[in-house]
């Protein structure tokens, strides 16, 4: 066997993976190891693969991903806190042939924007909602979120979430799956290569549903980490997520093609 050098391998014709051009070159504002970047990238990869970029309008939330429009290289609108599903409704209703998605965190979608989320789902708006659940308010510095686990520590539940006093975590995804207006509801993760591949498949299905005018909203929860908020290294955070978040927020499809599967 002839020796092969790195120079021989690193050639354009041997390229197998590079960041999509639908992600800008701006360095991401997220903490090291944060799942937001991966979720952004696979969303944009799907839009590229489905050749939808020219017809896509995204809606960014308030939260860590408030600047999503700096990184996603498509037309974007930044919405007020929690209002992204209403903003997306407005866009989709006046541009029914465009592809409209929101990208929201758990504070945005599951606390202040609960009403907008549930009603957009219940009306069956033909949009995609990508919901990043990391169990905490990341941007404001690690406060308790509606999705914070029982007993989980945050800066506003420093001794752990006391359910009797602070209430229960909200499983938005199970909740919206019950509404007749949702067509596809799934929960995914992006912390391992296998998880990313699955999540991307789900996102692709969601955008295909919209493109093909399937009746209803496609809702994708991505359970993610917040190593800064959880005060762990990125790899420890991913491990902790598997051990603690996944049992409470189980992975997999909940509703497919308008039918509950779980």
């Amino acid at each position: 066997m002839a020796e092969i050098t790195l120079q021989d391998i690193i050639k354009p014709e041997n390229l197998v993976y590079k960041k999509t051009d639908l992600m800008t070159d701006k360095p991401l504002s997220y903490c090291p190891g944060c799942g937001h970047g991966t979720a952004h990238r696979i969303t944009m990869e799907v839009i590229e693969e489905l050749n939808l970029a020219e017809d896509t309008i995204g809606v960014a939330p308030v939260g860590c991903s408030v600047l999503a429009y700096e990184f996603m290289n498509v037309d974007m609108t930044q919405a007020a806190h929690g209002r992204a599903p209403a903003v997306a409704t407005g866009i989709k209703r006046v541009w029914p042939n465009k592809v409209v998605f929101t990208y929201q965190g758990d504070g945005d979608l599951a606390a202040i924007g609960t009403s907008e989320t549930i009603h957009a789902c219940n009306r069956g708006e033909n949009i995609v909602i990508i919901f990043i659940n990391n169990g905490i308010y990341g941007m404001t510095g690690g406060q308790m979120a509606p999705t914070t686990l029982p007993g989980m520590k945050s800066s506003t539940s420093p001794y752990g979430r006391d359910v009797a006093m602070m209430g229960n975590p909200l499983k938005m995804t199970e909740l919206v799956a019950q509404l007749p207006g949702t067509y596809f509801v799934t929960r995914q993760a992006v912390h391992t290569p296998a998880a990313v591949r699955k999540a991307k498949k789900a996102i692709k299905k969601a955008f295909e549903n919209q493109r093909d005018c399937k009746p209803g909203l496609s809702f994708i929860e991505i359970v993610s980490n917040c190593n800064s908020g959880w005060k762990m290294t990125p790899t420890d955070a991913n491990k902790w997520m598997e051990e603690n978040m996944f049992p409470f927020y189980p992975m997999g499809d909940i509703k497919v093609d308008g039918q509950l599967v779980k």
Binding site: I4, I9, I10, N14, L15, Y17, L28, P32, G35, G37
Partner: peptide, 26 residues
């Protein structure tokens, strides 16, 4: 570097999309 099989796993999980992957069959 000799062990790399160009599977792209690293690039796929990289939150910042900083990894580009090349692969050849020998």
């Amino acid at each position: 570097p000799d062990e790399c099989i160009g599977c792209s796993n690293c690039a796929i999980v990289c939150p910042d999309g900083v990894i580009t992957v090349y692969k050849v069959k020998l």
